[in-house]
């Protein structure tokens, strides 16, 4: 199991970084991530300036949330891509018959998580500097060893939740034969609205905040904000909620994926080509 997982992580890292000079990969991922975060900041700033109520605390709220959202949104795709690309190249059927598909998917998620974590942290830093340079706003973000450690713990807790969601997407990828990236696009959009990435879930009309509360990602983003912006006292409850929900999502994802593999095998979808 460990060997399979390690091999899949290595393969995933090779795939993520192997096509060119690795620091260039990070740079090429960081630039769009930073631009995405800055777009949300500018939208807020234009709207708030026009209403004469621009608030730097909101900008800090946005930067932390949008950076973490970008992080999740960029690696929850990994399992879907592992299955759909794998079906096209026949890798997935071979992985399936070797009883390694779970390790394979988990390995690919971890590899994408590693790349995406670097990207998210750098994007957070770059966006903070860019806001100072572009808007002249200094953000009160606390970058201490403790806050960075707590922020990192949040990202690691998020890995379990992302793997759960990823396994559900992988289950979907077993059955789709075309336009397999359609669902993840919607999932990313829904996460942007409900995970408190760019605005508090309390602003959503009732009963929509319930959806936000049931997402582990919402609690991870809140915990990260507690670590970097404060108050730190909110951190333990949020990280605990994130861990519990993440574990529940992981178990759900595991069940859905295992069940789908069985159905997929019965109906002949495991090696059905993806266009």
């Amino acid at each position: 199991m460990i060997r399979k997982l390690a091999a899949s992580i290595m393969l995933g890292l090779e795939r993520e970084f192997g096509w060119t000079f690795p620091p260039l990969v990070i740079l090429l991922s960081m630039i769009p991530a930073t631009a995405g975060v800055l777009t949300a900041v500018m939208v807020y700033w234009v709207g708030a300036s026009a209403a004469d109520r621009a608030d730097p605390r909101w900008v800090a709220f946005l930067i932390v949330g949008a950076s973490l959202y970008t992080h999740f949104a960029s690696y929850i795709w990994a399992p879907l891509s592992a299955v759909s690309e794998g079906k096209a190249s026949y890798t997935y059927p071979l992985v399936f018959i070797s009883h390694s598909s779970l390790s394979y998917i988990a390995g690919r998620v971890v590899a994408s998580f590693i790349e995406s974590s670097f990207t998210a942290v750098l994007a957070l830093g770059a966006a903070t500097l860019a806001v100072k340079a572009l808007l002249g706003v200094t953000l009160e973000l606390s970058f201490t060893p403790l806050s960075i450690a707590l922020f990192s713990i949040g990202m690691i807790v998020g890995l379990l939740a992302a793997l759960g969601l990823g396994l559900m997407l992988a289950a979907y990828a077993i059955f789709v034969t075309r336009l397999e990236w359609g669902l993840p696009v919607y999932i990313s959009g829904i996460l942007m609205i409900f995970s408190e990435a760019i605005f508090p879930s309390s602003a959503l009309p009732a009963p929509l905040p319930i959806i936000a509360e049931s997402l582990p990602f919402t609690h991870i983003i809140r915990a990260a904000r507690a670590a970097l912006i404060g108050p730190l006292s909110l951190y333990p409850a949020e990280i605990l909620a994130a861990a519990l929900l993440g574990f529940a999502w992981f178990l759900t994802g595991l069940a859905v994926y295992t069940y789908s593999e069985g159905i997929g095998r019965r109906r002949g979808y495991i090696d059905y080509r993806v266009v």
Binding site: A40, V43, G47, A48
Partner: peptide, 13 residues
């Protein structure tokens, strides 16, 4: 665009 439109609303305009 819906998320950003909502952000414009919350921002005040």
């Amino acid at each position: 665009s819906l998320a950003l439109a909502f952000l414009y609303m919350l921002a005040g305009l």
